[in-house]
């Protein structure tokens, strides 16, 4: 097992081909087993940053390494196995005709077959509490179930780091809680991109604020959320009636 941090980003800058610059030198290190929330207003560059983690976007300045492996073209296959991105819309993530085939897609693309593949699929579905739904088509599931299957599709690849884009969006409170239980039960590094500040506080001991293409703050989630001037200056607002001071977090 490697002792390198799960994710190491240094000096990452990127401009889109149309000239719009989204990232201006991002430095971020996420240790093994950490759960980190990536907060930031719309347009801060969060999605751009996420797409750099597995080399979908590249060509700017700076470097990204995943558990010691640089994100470069020759490593893409392994990097994409190590970085599991769960996209916001489960209908984009789940593109196969049945849940089972969808969860099998990643490991099968990596060359797994037969009983080993079956075991991987079952294991991943059990981790998210969806083992009984393997043969259903994704569009027959509820939104919350689809989101959990989407998590299973990347868990099946045994990722080094799980990257979640707005995991709580469009979920009703019960599904939201179920997903939180699943995420807490996993033994994996998590980077969670979100606007849902209470959810970040609930699940991630550490948070970073990405604002105007740079990491503007990095610290304990509770400390950041309690720092009103900091929050205001980055267009981050707590929901009405929510006081992060009143919450006891481990």
């Amino acid at each position: 097992m490697t002792t390198a941090p799960s994710l190491e980003i240094s000096g990452l800058a990127y401009a889109y081909p149309d000239g719009h610059q989204a990232l201006f030198g991002v430095d971020l290190t996420v240790g093994r087993g950490e759960r980190v929330a990536l907060l930031g207003p719309n347009g801060a560059g969060k999605t751009t940053l996420v797409l750099h983690l597995n080399g979908i976007l590249a060509g700017g300045v700076g470097s990204v390494t995943v558990a010691g492996l640089p994100v470069e073209k020759r490593n893409f296959a392994e990097v994409r196995r190590r970085v599991g991105i769960v996209f916001q819309d489960p209908d984009d993530q789940l593109f196969m005709p049945t849940v089972r085939e969808d969860v099998a897609f990643g490991p099968a693309a990596a060359g797994l077959r037969g009983a080993e593949l079956e075991e991987r699929v079952q294991g991943a579905l059990e981790q998210v509490g969806m083992a009984g739904f393997a043969d259903r088509p994704p569009h027959h599931l509820s939104f919350g179930q689809r989101r959990r299957v989407a998590v299973a599709t990347v868990l099946a690849m045994r990722p080094e780091i799980l990257v979640l884009d707005e995991p709580s969006s469009n979920l009703d409170p019960a599904s939201r809680r179920e997903l939180a239980d699943v995420l807490r039960s996993l033994d994996v590094t998590v980077l969670m991109v979100t606007h849902d500040l209470p959810y970040a506080l609930e699940l991630c001991p550490r948070a970073v604020i990405l604002s105007e293409g740079v990491i503007a703050a990095d610290g304990r989630t509770q400390d950041l959320l309690c720092d009103e001037p900091l929050m205001r200056s980055h267009r981050l607002e707590l929901p009405f009636g929510f006081d992060p001071r009143s919450v006891h977090v481990a």
Partner: peptide, 13 residues
């Protein structure tokens, strides 16, 4: 496009 991104992210080549 988004589906393709999701596929590539899971090792589609």
């Amino acid at each position: 496009e988004r589906v393709y991104l999701a596929m590539v992210s899971r090792g589609y080549a």
